[in-house]
C-alpha cells in the first residue's frame, strides 16, 4: 500500500526527515510515536505534498503510484488522506458545500457517478451522527469556531465520507475528552475493512488500546529508530524515549 524508501525532507533549509523507511501493507495499522519536533507532522505533509516540505531524496508510493510526482489533489484522489493535527478554519465556506465538492472530486477520479443532492445529504448526516456532531455543524463554516475536539471529529467525519485507501491520522486523539476519544477510535475502527490502511501518529497509549496497531514505530531525529509490536507503545508509555539506545536527545545537536 504505502512504501517509503530512504526519504529525506527539508523544511526551511533544514533536514527534518533523514533516511526514513516505512512499508505498510493493505489492511495494516501502523502507529508512529516520537518526541515533539521529531518530524512526524513533517512526514505527513511531505506525503500529502504541502508547499515548503521539500523532498530531497528517496521515494514514496501509494499502491505503486509515485506519490511525490503528483499534485496535492491527485494524491488525495489516489486515496491518500490526512487528518490534520491542526485543522484549518475556513470561514464562509460551509462544511456541507466543501464536503460535496470533495466527495464529487473523489468519485469523479474513481469513475463513479456523482451522488445526487439527497443521497449526499443522507450520507453526510449519517457521518455527522457517527462522530457525534450535531447536524448544524454541516451548515457551519469549515472548522469555523469549532472546539479542538470538534475539529478532530470533523476530520474523522471527512475521512468516513471520502473513503480513502490510506489514512494518516496526525494526533487525532490529542485534546479529546474521554468520550470523544472513544468516538474517534470507533470512527477509525469502523473504517477498517481489511484493505484500508492506517498510519496513526500519537503520543498516547490510550488511543492504541482502542485501535490495536499491528506495528509501532518510534520516529526520532528524522528516522525510524525502533519498530515493534503493540507492546512497544506500552514500554514507551512507561519509560519515555530516553531508554532507547539509538536515541539521544542531544545527538542531533552534537553532530552538527
Amino acid at each position: 500500500m504505502l512504501k517509503i524508501t530512504d526519504l529525506q525532507v527539508k523544511v526551511a533549509d533544514k533536514d527534518i526527515i533523514n533516511g526514513l523507511n516505512l512499508h505498510i501493507k493493505p489492511g495494516e495499522v501502523h502507529a508512529i510515536m516520537g518526541p515533539n519536533g521529531a518530524g512526524k507532522s513533517t512526514l505527513s505533509y511531505a506525503l500529502t505534498g504541502r508547499d515548503g516540505y521539500q523532498v530531497t531524496r528517496g521515494s514514496a508510493s501509494l499502491d505503486d503510484q509515485d506519490l511525490l510526482d503528483m499534485e496535492i489533489d491527485q494524491r488525495a484522489t489516489a486515496g491518500l488522506f490526512l487528518a490534520f493535527q491542526y485543522p484549518v478554519e475556513i470561514p464562509g465556506v460551509s462544511n456541507m458545500e466543501f464536503l460535496k465538492v470533495a466527495v464529487d472530486a473523489q468519485r469523479l477520479a474513481r469513475g463513479a457517478t456523482k451522488y445526487s443532492a439527497s443521497e449526499f445529504l443522507k450520507l453526510a448526516k449519517a457521518a455527522c451522527k457517527q462522530v457525534n456532531l450535531p447536524l448544524s455543524f454541516l451548515k457551519r463554516g469549515v472548522n469555523e469556531g469549532f472546539s479542538g475536539g470538534e475539529k478532530k471529529r470533523n476530520e474523522i467525519m471527512q475521512m468516513i465520507m471520502l473513503e480513502p485507501k490510506l489514512c494518516i491520522l496526525d494526533e487525532s486523539d490529542s485534546g479529546l475528552d474521554i468520550d470523544a476519544l472513544k468516538i474517534v477510535a470507533d470512527g477509525i475502527n469502523s473504517q477498517r475493512d481489511g484493505k484500508r490502511s492506517f498510519l496513526v501518529i500519537t503520543h498516547y497509549q490510550r488511543l492504541l488500546d482502542y485501535i490495536k496497531p499491528d506495528y509501532v514505530h518510534v520516529l526520532a531525529d528524522g528516522k525510524i529508530v525502533k519498530s515493534g509490536g503493540p507492546e512497544l507503545a506500552l514500554e514507551l508509555e512507561a519509560q519515555g524515549y530516553s531508554w532507547l539506545e539509538s536515541y539521544d536527545r542531544n545527538a542531533g545537536d552534537a553532530s552538527e
Binding site: I72, F81, I90, F98, A105, L162
Partner: peptide
C-alpha cells in the same frame, strides 16, 4: 488552499470555494 486540495479539490475548485 492546501487543506482543501488535500481533500481532492483541484486548485481551481479550492479557489472558487475560498
Amino acid at each position: 488552499m492546501f487543506y482543501l486540495q488535500s481533500r481532492g479539490l483541484s486548485r481551481n475548485e479550492a479557489q472558487v470555494l475560498l
